[in-house]
Design a protein around this nucleic acid. Structure first.
Length: 107
DNA sequence: ATGGTGACTCGGG
DNA sequence: ACCCGAGCCACCA
């Protein structure tokens, strides 16, 4: 295994940190950028175990359906944070991916 | 070392 | 569009 596979978590941190204000991305996209297209699930795992004092904008990560994967108080916290950035949720608690999705392609 | 787990996805029906 | 079953795979006990 090349060092590419090492520090998956490290890569996730770096990618999440790059998501701009007012934009969102999916677990799958992060997995892809991190070099493990099939590890979307693990991305969630990494975020789940983020240290409480982390400054990462973890709230900008949602699932492929455009909805928040968290539940309970965590769900509310994430939704509130996103709305504070101007992201609108539809009646079914979903955001317009085409509109807010962060496209890594730039420069 | 080994096996279980889940903040996910995709493909069918 | 919704529900489900089945892969996936880094991480943790």
């Amino acid at each position: 295994m090349s060092e590419e596979n090492d520090h998956f978590r490290q890569r996730v941190f770096h990618i999440v940190a790059a998501i701009p204000y007012g934009k969102i991305t999916t677990y799958g996209d992060i997995a892809l950028l991190a070099g493990s297209p099939r590890a979307a699930r693990q991305v969630g795992g990494v975020l789940k175990r983020l240290p409480k004092d982390s400054k990462l904008p973890w709230h900008r990560v949602i699932n492929r359906k455009g909805e928040i994967s968290l539940v309970g108080g965590d769900y509310v916290r994430q939704k509130t944070a996103l709305q504070a950035e101007g992201i609108r949720f539809n009646r079914q608690g979903r955001v317009d991916l085409a509109k807010y999705r962060w496209q890594y392609a730039k420069n």
